[in-house]
Nucleic acid binder design. Sequence first.
DNA 1: TTAACATATCATCATATACTGATATAATGA
DNA 2: TCATTATATCAGTATATGATGATATGTTAA
Lengths: 119, 119
Amino acid sequence: MLMTADTVTLNLKAKLFRGFGDASRLHILTVLREKPLAVNEIVALTGLSQPNVSNHLNCLKDCGLVLAEQTGRYMVYRLSDDRVDQLITIVETLLADVAKGVYECTRYDNATVEPKPGD
Amino acid sequence: MLMTADTVTLNLKAKLFRGFGDASRLHILTVLREKPLAVNEIVALTGLSQPNVSNHLNCLKDCGLVLAEQTGRYMVYRLSDDRVDQLITIVETLLADVAKGVYECTRYDNATVEPKPGD
DNA sequence: TTAACATATCATCATATACTGATATAATGA
DNA sequence: TCATTATATCAGTATATGATGATATGTTAA
């Protein structure tokens, strides 16, 4: 399939969504909703390893979801845009309505899914 | 690893975001913004293979992002909630501001978006 | 019933990517 | 300078998951 302009845009949007689509990154984004934080603070708040946090922050920064500013020997990160917070808020409200489904969404992992009545 | 209530919620939110975080699924969701569609119509509009569309629709349905209704021999899918459309809209506006960064965000993968042979 | 169509599922493969431990780089202060 | 702290990067591994081709299931109509 050819890489049309639409396809490129589609990939960019998907990639942006994927920025939020990992529990670790979402955790980082969530603690950053409160206030800008240095890496070590994010490590402490999330319980993730330092290299792991650094990797995720790097991704989030490259994707434009967070901004970084060097302050002394601290690198302080913050959300880049109100819409980042906004997207999380909307998903939180949406989750309240579809939580059960999401919880059971195992996609290809059918091995863990029990047979439905009538099967 | 301990699975606190917060961790569970975090994973659910991330999973919901991941529903949007794939170009194929996002394409499907995008064509469904216009109107409800049968699987064969989605296949035609997206150019994806039928099993692939079916798999993604199954995921989207389980995750509560779309609803399915059998109509004769057609299975008609539609977006489950206005917020699904809303989230895509916000990401589209956000993308306009951070597009360059997203495009360059390769994280661990270096083979970004090249057409595959045979496509 | 059979044929044709519509959709779902399965086995398999290939790739993406999250994580860890070790190490490198950078900034500060003694 | 050296020691300490803060962050980033790298190699290696394990897992998740997207895609395909074949097949099964389900629906309608002749």
